[in-house]
Simulated scan of single mutants.
Amino acid sequence: MRHFPDNLGLATDLLLHAETGIVESRDDYIVVRTPDAPEYFFGNMLVLPQQPAGSDLKRLEHDFAHLVGKPPSIAHRTFTWPESVDSVVTLDAFIEQGYDATVCRVLAAHPDDLRPVATSALVEVRPFAVQQDWDDWSRMQLADMPNPEEITSQRYMAHQQTAYKTLIDRGLGNWWGAFIGDEQVGSLGLFFLDGIARFQSVITAPQHRNRNVCKSLMAEVIRRTAGRSHQFVIVADEAYHAGEIYEAMGFQRQGRVASLCQEPRNITER
C-alpha cells in the first residue's frame, strides 16, 4: 500500500481515488484530483501528513489553489489527514473561517474476527443488475444529502455512479442492494484493493432503519465474497451511530480520518 499503511481508511481511499482520478505526491502533500468532476469535494483535495494548526490556514489555502485549483474551476477547499484512535482533534480556527470538520473512525476486521448478528428474513441481497437499481440508489443517496435539489449535488451523484460502474467493470468489486420485495431499502459498495476489502457508502432508507437491514446486507455480502480478501475496512463518521453496528459485528477501531471542507458558498478571499 503506497500511502499511509498505518491508516487503512486513508490508504484505501487513496487507492480508490487512483482508480478513478489522479493521486500524486507533491511537496508535503498527496494531491488528489478528479478532473472530470471539479465539484467533487473529496475527489479534489490535499492530503496532509498530520493535523494542521490554525496558523497553517493561509499557507494551506495558498497551496490548495496552486496544487488542486481555485475558482472558477475549483470552488471549494478540502484537506484530510490521518489521526490515531485517541488523539485530540482541535479545529476551531478553521471552523471559524467557514470550514466543516469531520472525524471518522476507521474500523477493520479479519474474516475470523466477524461475529454473527441479527438479520432480517425479509431482506434479499443481490448485486445491482439493471439501471433501475442505480436510479433508486441515486434517489436514496440524494435524499440523504443536505441539498439534494442543487444541480451540483446531482452532478456529483452522476459522477459517482459512473466511477463506481468503472470500478465494477474492471473487476474490482460490486455494488450490492438490500431489497424487500421490489423495493431497494439499502445498499453498499465493496471493492478489493491490495488484498483489502473496502466498504463504500453503506446506507439504509430512513423508513427501514433499526430493522436489521444494514446487518443483513453486510453479513450476506461478506459471506458471498469470502476468500477474496484478508481484511475488511469501513470508515464511519463519529457523529453517527453506524460505527456501533460495525463494532457489534466484530470490527475494531484501527485509527481515524479527519477532514476539513470549505464549500463554495463559504469561500472568502484572504
Rank of each mutant, 00 (worst) to 15 (best):
E238T: 03
A118S: 09
P71N: 04
H230F: 12
P127I: 02
L107T: 03
V125N: 06
I196V: 07
A118H: 07
Q200K: 08
T12M: 04
A121G: 15
D27K: 13
V23N: 02
Y40Q: 03
L107H: 12
V47G: 09
A121H: 14
I234K: 13
A163I: 13
N44T: 11
Y99G: 10
T119H: 11
D13E: 08
D169E: 06
R26F: 04
P49G: 09
M140F: 01
H62M: 02
I222A: 00
L60C: 05
Y40H: 01
Q207D: 09
D63V: 09
R26W: 06
Q50E: 12
P82A: 14
Y240V: 12
Q200A: 02
S138D: 06
P82S: 07
I30M: 06
D169T: 10
L46S: 11
A109I: 11
G43K: 09
E238S: 07
T12K: 07
S201H: 05
F42L: 01
N44K: 15
Q184S: 14
P206C: 10
A248S: 02
F128K: 10
I30F: 04
Q141D: 09
E269G: 15
Q231G: 10
Q160A: 05
D237K: 10
R211Y: 04
Q160T: 05
Q184G: 06
F191Y: 01
G171P: 08
L16H: 06
D144H: 03
R2C: 05
D237I: 01
P111I: 13
H3S: 05
Y156P: 00
A11W: 00
H208T: 09
V89K: 15
V88I: 03
G250I: 12
C214W: 12
G255M: 13
T152D: 00
R223S: 09
H159C: 12
E124H: 13
D13I: 10
S73G: 13
F41I: 06
D92P: 01
A219H: 09
G227K: 10
I245E: 00
E149D: 13
H3M: 12
Q51I: 15
F199P: 05
R223C: 07
E263L: 02
P5Q: 14
N44M: 08
L10G: 13
Q131V: 03
Y156K: 09
P148T: 07
S87I: 08
I95F: 02
T166V: 01
Q252H: 11
S55L: 11
